[in-house]
Design a protein around this nucleic acid. Structure first.
Length: 572
DNA sequence: GCCGTTTTCGGCCCGACTGTTTTCAGTCG
């Protein structure tokens, strides 16, 4: 069994225990186990094989009882305790929990009172007005449930880029390594690095298309083959996403790649230019008087159309073609070019790793500096830090900075913005920090006017450097807060506040159009991971993709610069 | 359920906010 499968089981047990109103510390013990296993650098199965149950008990937060449960899972593939709980409360926890405002206690209550087991049943009951009649619920709760379900439906069928990227890239690499495949590249919205993708479109060049297709359908992840031909094969992968493979001859490569990368609007605009120049553009090539003049790659294809090469992330027909005509395309911030990360949580609050472990992971990833920005005191549930603890953490950071070479740790915090715009941490404490980030964590439903005023009030604090995940959206889970983003950008400009591009796969916040607005206004940005584990640093690439889709250049991104330069770019 | 120079039991953690209560339960991350 994989670490993440085992971790998921412990997280699920924690949820069941929450339903049953178990002792909160017992619940936390199970949650902590999930977190520990999830962020383990080695295979837990291997650990167990080497050191047995004793090795499991060596792990932090894992004692006799839980170690025995892990052993049972590794030996039998099942856990009796878990199976019993599932049988006792047979509900779709994952689905129901995704409805905003629905947690474990309500799931159990709804199951007991109305027998609700799934989101579909919940929706039906809400529509029939059954929810509002329950004690503890009311008209507003019922309305919020329906709103939450509506929101879920809208995002159904799309997958987070960050979640499918590892598998998609792996398949791409497997195809590339085949001796009879000359080129293989994922196209579609994946190549444009959209936040979510509907399916994986792969383009390959080969003289032996049948062999490529045979390989493709026999991959272990394939659970269904929708269709298989010489040029196109469509399959369903075991994680629920569809994958299409197209094999084209080399001479069509440039045009095919361009066509399958999209976007549709971008392609239509390109075809119009071709027609204007008495050419014809299709997925087979760019033809002038019947002759394919597309060349060997997309650069030559764009060139033949009289355009500078347009990066995939810009291909939305949102001004990029005009810019390419006038040679005014941005020089986009490059992948792997970040020097630091200014939002990181540690095990002082809800992160999995210590400050030192995070610093070493960051260094190994190639960063030169990081800011530790644990949550502040009003997020009590996750042990948010008060002024005293922040000062104490600062001392630990001083010691680590002396000890560690090649990575500089900055002192920071993710300060909670209260409902009225006040910060929950004293100025005298913030003054001592290198990086003060602020963020909204509650009262997401304020009106646009209230919310904008709230955030502006917070931004106007002289110690504040960065507004973290400005719109607070969780893709597919929670809509963005109501915010006058233009006004926020204005205030960012006048106060020198940096706006964040959060790289977490389900956040990606700011989003592309807001980034573009900020860039245009001359407001600086920072690409952070919001890492809660040392494994999260690769998510920075998603943040860079987001920045690129927002037309951001190196000059716009403060952490693309070395520490000294970066510090000059923030408020003093 | 875990942990231990406070060491085998008692602490771990203790706030804001909503929507529903008429004094509080549940969610948030």
């Amino acid at each position: 069994m994989k670490n993440e499968e085992i971790a998921k089981i412990f997280y699920d047990i924690a949820l069941f225990l929450q339903m049953k109103d178990e002792n909160v510390f017992k619940i936390r013990a199970y949650e902590r186990t999930g977190q520990t296993i999830e962020s383990l650098p080695t295979d837990i199965e291997l650990l167990y094989k080497k050191g047995g149950i004793d090795a499991l008990q060596e792990l932090p937060g894992i004692g006799r009882a839980i170690a025995e449960k892990i052993e049972e899972l590794l030996k039998t593939g099942k856990l009796q305790t878990f199976e019993r709980l599932k049988k006792e409360i047979p509900v779709d926890i994952d689905g129901l929990r995704r409805v905003e405002g629905i947690g474990p206690r309500k799931i159990l209550f709804l199951y007991k009172k109305l027998g609700i087991k799934s989101v579909a049943e919940l929706e039906k009951a809400a529509k029939q007005g059954k929810i509002s009649r329950l004690s503890g619920f009311g008209a507003k709760s019922q309305e919020n449930i329906l709103k939450g379900i509506e929101f879920l439906k809208k995002t159904k069928g799309r997958y987070l880029l960050g979640h499918i990227m590892p598998l998609a890239t792996d398949i791409e690499n497997r195809l590339k390594q085949l001796p009879f495949v000359r080129k293989a590249v994922i196209s579609g919205s994946f190549r444009r690095r959209k936040e979510t993708v509907g399916d994986i479109d792969i383009l390959a060049i080969s003289d032996k298309p049948e062999k490529v297709m045979d390989f493709f359908v026999s991959m272990p992840e394939v659970i269904n083959v929708y269709g298989k031909g010489k040029t196109k094969t469509m399959v369903l992968l075991n994680n629920g996403i569809g994958a299409d493979l197209r094999v084209v001859p080399e001479k069509s490569y440039a045009a095919a790649l361009n066509y399958f990368t999209g976007s549709k609007d971008h392609n239509i605009a390109l075809r119009r230019i071709a027609i204007h120049k008495r050419m014809k553009l299709s997925e087979y090539g760019l033809f002038k008087k019947g002759k394919n003049i597309s060349g060997i790659d997309e650069k030559s294809l764009y060139g033949a159309l009289g355009l500078k090469y347009i990066e995939p992330e810009l291909r939305e027909n949102a001004g990029e073609i005009e810019a390419a005509m006038q040679d005014k395309l941005p020089i986009l911030i490059e992948y792997k070019s970040l020097k630091g990360d200014l939002q990181i949580q540690t095990n002082w609050t809800d992160g999995s790793n210590s400050i030192e472990e995070m610093a070493i992971a960051a260094k190994n990833y190639g960063l030169e500096y990081i800011a530790i920005t644990d949550h502040t005191k009003t997020l009590a549930m996750i042990n948010g830090l008060n002024e005293k603890k922040i000062a104490k953490q600062g001392k630990e950071i001083d010691i680590l900075n002396k000890k560690l070479k090649g990575i500089k740790i900055l002192k920071g915090a993710e300060v909670n913005i209260l409902k009225n715009g006040k910060l929950d941490t004293k100025d005298s404490c913030l003054k001592e920090l290198d990086i003060v980030g602020i963020a909204v964590h509650a009262s997401f439903n304020q009106t646009k006017q209230e919310m904008t005023k709230r955030i502006i009030t917070a931004m106007e604090n002289e110690h504040v450097d960065i507004l973290f995940h400005p719109t607070c959206r969780l893709i597919g889970k929670r809509p963005a807060i109501q915010l006058d983003i233009e006004k926020i950008i204005d205030i960012a400009k006048s106060t020198g506040t940096i706006l964040e591009i959060n790289s977490m796969p389900d956040r990606l916040d700011l989003k592309d159009e807001h980034i573009r607005m900020a860039v245009k206004a001359g407001v600086r940005l920072v690409i952070d991971t919001d890492a809660h584990s040392g494994y999260h640093f690769p998510f920075l690439e998603l943040g860079i993709a987001q920045a690129r889709r927002g037309w951001a250049e190196k000059k716009d991104i403060i952490n693309a610069w070395p520490l000294k330069t970066m510090m000059k770019m923030i408020k003093i």
